[in-house]
């Protein structure tokens, strides 16, 4: 299928790790999306297990609970023929800094080819990547980055809208604490989309305009004429009067319902990284509206994107078909 992207061999993906979207070029992002597109096009029901990563070992190292992301990475690695080991380290039972390095040393001795790492502390994945001698994919670090989520969001949008450049995307909700928001802002602005962030002022991080995003505290104004509405999850503990007074006030002013969505373009699509709080940040019917909601597409694209990332980091020189048995 190399004719689909004739100019893709160079630049390829010239990085050892995927720690974040910040710093990736437009060409590198396109390379990953194009590769993911190839995997997404394959019908999973007839999926012929690939042997591209046969003999490779991937360790999912999760210092924070996650079912969706871990499962998605596991499936991606297995579909490419890799051995997968899942390690969950309950963050409550460790002294973080010390154990992180200790864990890295132990893992290095096992000689894995790639680590997928999620950690509740921003910067922890990058720190770990300096201590191991294999490739590392950031599966989400604190409030910093979640690059594969941004890639799967971009792929979902691109497959539905045909492009990213020129689209207006509103990212709504707890931008302050969201790694998904940061990675998406980097990716979408790099790809030429207009990015808006919509949140109560207490959940807008300082200096967000400097990221190239336009900030709104009035949701209707922020949603005016957007192509994509990307909702973020709001953690319950932030709705008890510290950042936001209450769930009902949050839903009233910042929850996505049909009325607020009416200010967006008529064909605007709704996205959510999951898991959703129905009735908090999104109206339940809207979340299930297959004409408007990209939420299920996002989950499906997650596996394809992660296959592409594993492929790019471990077998970047190979086109996708070469590895098939």
């Amino acid at each position: 299928m190399s004719e689909t992207h004739p100019s893709r061999e160079p630049p390829g993906f010239p990085h050892r790790h995927l720690l974040g979207i910040e710093g990736l070029s437009r060409g590198e992002i396109e390379f990953l999306l194009d590769l993911a597109d190839v995997y997404a096009a394959k019908d999973p029901r007839d999926h012929q297990r690939s042997s591209l990563l046969s003999g490779y070992t991937v360790i999912n190292l999760f210092f924070e609970n996650s079912t969706r992301t871990r499962t998605s990475f596991e499936l991606a690695a297995k579909r490419l023929g890799a051995e997968v080991i899942n390690m969950s380290v309950a963050s409550s039972s460790i002294k973080k800094g010390e154990t992180l390095i200790d864990t890295a040393m132990t893992l290095t001795a096992m000689r894995p080819d790639l680590l997928v790492v999620r950690h509740p502390d921003s910067g922890a994945v990058s720190l770990l990547s300096e201590k191991v001698d294999c490739a590392v994919i950031n599966g989400g670090d604190g409030s910093h980055e979640h690059p594969t989520q941004a890639l799967l969001d971009a792929l979902s949008i691109r497959r539905r809208k045909g492009r990213l450049a020129g689209l207006t995307v509103a990212i709504c909700g707890d931008v302050l604490h969201s790694r998904v928001a940061r990675s998406n802002i980097y990716l979408l602005t790099t790809m030429g989309a207009q990015v808006r962030v919509i949140a109560p002022p207490t959940l807008l991080p300082a200096g967000i305009e400097r990221f190239g995003a336009q900030a709104f505290t009035d949701m209707r104004a922020g949603l005016a004429d957007v192509d994509i509405v990307m909702m973020l999850r709001l953690q319950n503990e932030r709705m008890q009067g510290s950042y936001v007074p209450s769930v009902r006030e949050y839903f009233r002013f910042y929850g996505l319902d049909q009325e607020k969505l009416a200010s967006a373009k008529p064909d605007a699509l709704v996205m959510h990284p999951g898991p959703m709080n129905r009735g908090v940040e999104i109206d339940s019917e809207l979340a299930d509206d297959i004409d408007r909601s990209l939420i299920h597409t996002q989950v499906a694209m997650g596996v394809a994107v992660r296959m592409a990332c594993l492929h790019a980091l471990l077998r970047g020189e190979e086109p996708p078909e070469e590895g098939r048995a």
Binding site: G241, P245, R248, E249
Partner: peptide, 15 residues
């Protein structure tokens, strides 16, 4: 400004 004038949790300012 805060629930029960307790000085900790902000009230539903918008509503």
């Amino acid at each position: 400004l805060t629930r029960g004038l307790g000085g900790r949790e902000i009230t539903e300012i918008g509503l």
